[in-house]
Simulated assay, not measured.
Amino acid sequence: MNIAYSLNFVTCSDASGGHRMAWHQWGDADSAHVVVCAHGLSRQGRDFDVLAQSLCQQAIDKGHTIRVVCPDVVGRGQSDWLQDPMGYQVPFYVADMLAMLAQIHLQAPIRELDWVGTSMGGLIGLVIAGQPGLPLPVPVRRLVLNDVGPSIEWQAIVRIGTYLGKAGAFKSLQEAADAMLAVSAGFGPHTTAQWLELSRHMVKPLADSLHGELRLHYDPAIALPFKQATEAATLEGQAALWALYDAIAVPTLLLRGKDSDLLSPATALAMTQRGPKASLVEFAGVGHAPTLIASNQLAAVSQFLL
């Protein structure tokens, strides 16, 4: 499989003078069918390498073209870090995505726009698909929410808070991969090679290190607004998220790790009964969140989008 890849940047505005957001592109740069894949809280866009290449190849096999765009949300991966860490919140991420989509649309007009969002990336997609009047090139055609919904279980937020922002220092990629595996059991089973590849883009050389040490790629300050959340404020925010979800009027696929501690069975069931009445697919032996690498996970997404 030899799918075209490029790293791109878009300049986004903020109160401190602006920042650059990176986005990874797979497939035909001129395709009018764009699929955006948005990652989770402490991850980055290269998490979707396997899914992106699979979608591109399947589109080619069907005689179509497709462009898969995987942003590094600001503060992660190849994107800038913000001067004001309170900008690490979903409304600001949505503004960055609108800037990216406008740039992509200028390069080659978008006629079909799909969104695949894991965890935080799903919340961004929920806003983009559920808030009318946003300056999108075209409305979202299909939405995939990967292990996230309007109601988020508080115990999962507490669990994530125990490790978020601890960038660490690692002597090797393997040591970093082992450390990430310890807090990522919910991702489900992966081969050693798969996990190493998932980990490769999660680290970068530690500045001023004499021994080639590595650290996690993200700005530790992304934890600051996250850790200011309270259980009461989280419950209040859920009403607004449900209103956005109920406003979504496009086909929606909800993926859930059967052992997820973030998306409860009750919330998933409610999501199949209201709003877009999402189709639910669950994966046994997986918690929060499916990585969309296993063949059954790839199949669920590709069959829905293609």
Rank of each mutant, 00 (worst) to 15 (best):
A182P: 04
V148A: 00
V158D: 09
V140Q: 11
S172E: 06
A167I: 13
A156Y: 00
A177K: 04
S172G: 08
P132A: 14
L145G: 15
H190K: 12
D178S: 09
V138C: 11
V138I: 12
G161C: 07
Q155K: 11
H190R: 11
L173C: 05
G133Y: 13
F170Y: 15
S184V: 11
I152E: 09
F170H: 07
A167W: 01
L134G: 06
V148Y: 00
R142A: 09
A176P: 02
F187L: 15
L181M: 12
I157V: 15
W154E: 12
A179D: 00
V158A: 10
P139K: 08
G165E: 03
H190T: 08
E153R: 05
I157L: 15
R141E: 13
A177H: 02
S172A: 05
M180P: 07
A156N: 07
P135V: 04
P139M: 05
T162S: 13
L164M: 15
H190S: 11
G165H: 05
L143S: 09
W154Y: 07
F187N: 14
P135S: 03
V148W: 00
Y163R: 10
W154K: 05
A182S: 15
E153T: 03
Y163K: 08
F170N: 05
V158I: 13
V148I: 12
G149S: 08
K171L: 01
A169Q: 06
R159S: 11
V144F: 01
K166C: 01
D147H: 10
D178Q: 06
A182L: 08
D147V: 04
A176Q: 07
T191I: 05
I160T: 14
L145P: 12
N146P: 07
P132D: 12
I157F: 13
L145N: 14
P137A: 00
F187K: 12
L136C: 07
L143I: 08
P132M: 08
G188L: 06
L143A: 06
Y163D: 09
L143G: 04
M180K: 05
P189A: 11
R141K: 15
L164R: 13
G149W: 12
L181R: 15
I157N: 13
L181T: 08
I152Q: 12
A156C: 02
D147Q: 11
R159E: 13
G168I: 03
M180H: 04
V138F: 11
E153K: 02
R142E: 13
E153H: 04
V140C: 14
P132H: 14
P135I: 06
V144W: 02
A167T: 15
I160E: 15
L136I: 10
D178L: 11
P135Y: 03
L181Y: 07
A185F: 11
A182V: 07
R159Q: 14
P135R: 01
I157G: 10
